[in-house]
Design a protein around this nucleic acid. Structure first.
Lengths: 248, 248
DNA sequence: AAATAATGATAGTTTTGCTATCATTATTAG
DNA sequence: CTAATAATGATAGCAAAACTATCATTATTT
């Protein structure tokens, strides 16, 4: 997929025909995102999608085997996009702490549309990932699908974040667990704030994403930094170290 | 539901007829748990269930409106059971730290069958909660269902844990978020260890549940305790601090 | 023994998930 | 510019899933 000339590659086994290369394919992507958001995954189906885009069920099936794989394709796109953004932003940063801050910012921020890809509405895709993302790998075919590399993007994304965590604290015992937890928390606490507010301190009102970012920063900072740096704390703006850096 | 003479109450709107009160109802519960575990939620349906228990589809529908609500019923049972166990175990403990340790133990441990309720196999139910639990509230009806109190048990469970967190550190800013995250992490890291091992440090081999418990304890301790207490650490036994703590 | 409630048996409806066939329209290659 | 080839549309159909309805039968309660 061409973004600023760079290609995000999605596992080829996820589709029958590359949806990005044709008008119909892009239409399938665009409207499946909108419809899954509107109807939810279970009420969404290829018949309704075909009707909406003025095509036929058979044609849609020529691109994706079924809606489960279409969902996996979409969340892969999201994960790839997030990983790309983290790589971009972190590339030229030397300070590992700043790198981690930027990564967490990306985790929460990938929602906001940046690349102008006509056929993917990142805002809506983000809502899908929040609401339905976990269903991509919660099914009886996980192991087979994992073998086919369907979750490579997610694992690689997790890996990137884990490495940044290790740069900050090489002896942190749970870099991957923290990375995946931060990714999952980002989605969960948005969802909780909107639907089950008693499960989180994040409030629907106000800047929800900013609150989630602060939450993740708080958790990450407390966990990865040896306690002498705790004084500096996580919270957002006033993250300039008033106190000199000690560690490393 | 009678366990040692105590009743776990499940929201009455979740069922048409109370499944615990009849032979058929209990058979539905027992075998739906087994079949969802075997087939996964999407391949499981009331026709197959009816066939297996030697009854009819119509009869099953007299107990539960559909399989989504049956799932919600089952995970509610699990949440209620966990909350009950935490209350029981924490009741007579005064030390808040010990209370938190016990709560985390329950979060991970509710898997292991304790109450001998003939028609609920806690081991298998736990696997269902791990693999399918999130689907209980990831659907387009959340808000309506939440209004009907379908998630009260989960929220109340979260609340219990959040209160224990606050007993340990009254100024901890994210008690609910940490509580829900611990609950979600417990499930996720078991699932990851078994299916997507690169997302966690928890290994499938060895005592998986013990590892998850140590992970949760590590996170909880680092997060809720002011750093002078870090030295004592979470994981009970071998968390002795080699390095002296400085901050505060 | 009569009334009531739960189940079984059977049937039928609508929707979903998916495949097949063939004609038509683009696209590309020679 | 035509011939080949690829993609789409149109239509059909089928098997399963997700229900609902009816009525007879069997328990249970009173």
């Amino acid at each position: 997929m061409a973004i600023l000339g760079i290609e995000l590659s999605i596992n080829e086994k996820l589709y029958q025909r590359n949806p990005q290369r044709t008008e119909l394919g892009r239409s399938i992507l665009r409207h499946s995102i909108l419809m899954i958001d509107e109807l939810g995954l279970e009420r969404f189906n290829f018949r309704k999608l075909a009707e909406r885009i003025g095509s036929t069920e058979a044609s849609v099936y020529r691109y994706f085997e079924n809606k489960q794989l279409l969902l996996v394709y979409l969340v892969n796109w999201y994960w790839e996009w997030m990983r790309f953004r983290i790589d971009m932003k972190a590339m030229h940063i030397n300070d590992p702490k700043e790198k981690l801050r930027v990564a967490i910012c990306c985790i929460v921020d990938t929602a906001k549309r940046n690349a102008r890809i006509e056929f993917i509405d990142e805002d809506v895709l983000h809502r899908i990932v929040v609401a339905e993302g976990a269903k991509a790998y919660h099914n009886k075919e996980v192991d087979a699908q994992n073998k086919d590399g369907f979750f490579w993007s997610y694992k690689e994304l997790c890996n990137r974040i884990a490495n940044i965590i290790l740069e900050n604290n090489p002896s942190f015992p749970y870099p991957r667990a923290l990375a995946s937890s931060l990714l999952e928390m980002a989605n969960n606490h948005i969802y909780f704030a909107e639907h089950l507010p008693r499960l989180t301190e994040v409030k629907e009102e106000g800047d929800l994403l900013k609150q989630v970012e602060l939450l993740l920063l708080y958790f990450a900072w407390r966990l990865v930094f040896p306690s002498e740096e705790q004084s500096e704390q996580a919270a957002g703006h006033r993250f300039n170290s008033q106190s000199g850096q000690v560690w490393h």
